[in-house]
Write a protein that binds this DNA or RNA. Structure first.
Lengths: 220, 220
DNA sequence: AAAATATTTTAGATTTGCCTAAAATATATT
DNA sequence: AATATATTTTAGGCAAATCTAAAATATTTT
């Protein structure tokens, strides 16, 4: 039974979860992710500790407890189910989906989410290719072949974008890269790890490392 | 352009709107509706006045401004569209719909609501029979649903009696039917258009056409 | 129209989440 | 290992929305 938490608390838990997964959890990183000051983060960490959602003590590393992780997975589940709904049913563009889901995820009815899940036919992956935890909190690993690792001349499809940064999504839109887009690596420049990629059937273009590492592909 | 308001502000505006429609708007009634104390209501009324959503001055009557009414209609629109969605798509029972919609209505994306509206095919009435304002804030009069038109097994309340005939009122008294009485149609006889109705929790009784066409009901 | 009652508002506190500035601790550099 | 730098925490405050208790105004009753 997940009791009720404030929207702020949930946002902290979610951010902690994601940073923890990336292996870069700290007060400073958290404050950056949440756009608050480190001092504010410390305040909240104490509260989360009191609620037994994280383990924490002054100046030490901190992390989610089991209880915290269960909550985090539940929030992630809500978020991704809503993303799926917005994209699949309401035909939102996939780069608009994230912001709205950010609000919807805090609606706390367990029943709502389970019914939504059923209505959507229990999708296991959201529009960004991220796996959706099921009602028990189980989430599959996601395939992790990045565009940056794709062999030369191997045709593949974009299946996920490993970042929600607006600037990135904007860039993808500009290049007309989306889920399912066919790509093929033509050349690799060791100098700056940039890559020459053929998108769909257009002439090859140059893409930087940050971008190609964020694009998850699957060989055709 | 509806700027952003806090959830609390929106709840106040919505409650003021409904009380205003029923003709019973006062600090005390508002505090009861919102489950806060009158003193808290006064505080908020000052804030809403500053934001030009209501007209108010100490100890005087207060009411929504045009700006306030537009906002109220927009909130009502969101609420009722979500209710429709929950009932129609997710198959929630009607009595569960309200509480969840109460949370969903505060998700502020205009685009979300318009797309939801389209997805639902622009319904004009929610599962309780209440009219849904359109994107322009236009709302039709509440449909006068007569007991004779009530679907089978749909619980409803008597909200009006479309006749003042003494004989009718006498009959109602005899059956212990009054405003607010819960009714549920159990069977319909096409032969003489009489109906078998369960009143409150008593055993169902037979009512004639003239009577059932005079009783206005509202789905619960 | 005065008194009694009911309603509403003011005044002063509390809690949540945030802030700035300063202190404490941890990490990196020499 | 000592110092310099970076990070994190503490201390003290602020704004939103609430509360209680007391004061001000309206309304009802006699």
């Amino acid at each position: 039974m997940l009791s009720k938490y404030t929207i702020t608390e949930e946002n902290y838990i979610k951010a902690i979860f994601h940073l923890q997964e990336e292996g870069g959890l700290s007060t400073g990183k958290l404050s950056a992710a949440l756009k608050t000051k480190p001092a504010s983060v410390t305040d909240m960490l104490k509260k989360l500790k009191d609620k037994k959602l994280i383990s924490w003590s002054p100046y030490k590393k901190f992390k989610l407890t089991v209880k915290g992780k269960i909550l985090a997975l539940n929030i992630v589940r809500r978020h991704r189910l809503w993303e799926y709904f917005l994209s699949e049913k309401l035909h939102f563009d996939w780069d608009e989906v994230h912001a709205v889901a950010e609000e919807l995820e805090h609606v706390s009815s367990e029943k709502l989410i389970d019914k939504l899940d059923a209505y959507l036919n229990f999708p296991r992956v959201d529009p960004h290719g991220d796996p959706i935890p099921d009602a028990m909190g189980n989430m599959q690993q996601r395939a992790q072949l990045r565009l940056s690792d794709l062999p030369i001349n191997a045709p593949a499809n974009i299946i996920a974008v490993a970042s929600q940064e607006l600037q990135l999504l904007e860039l993808l839109k500009h290049f007309e890269i989306g889920l399912g887009t066919r790509v093929e690596v033509k050349k690799r420049f060791d100098f700056d790890e940039s890559i020459e990629v053929k998108i769909k059937n257009k002439t090859a273009i140059q893409l930087g490392e940050a971008l190609t590492k964020s694009l998850i592909v699957k060989l055709i």
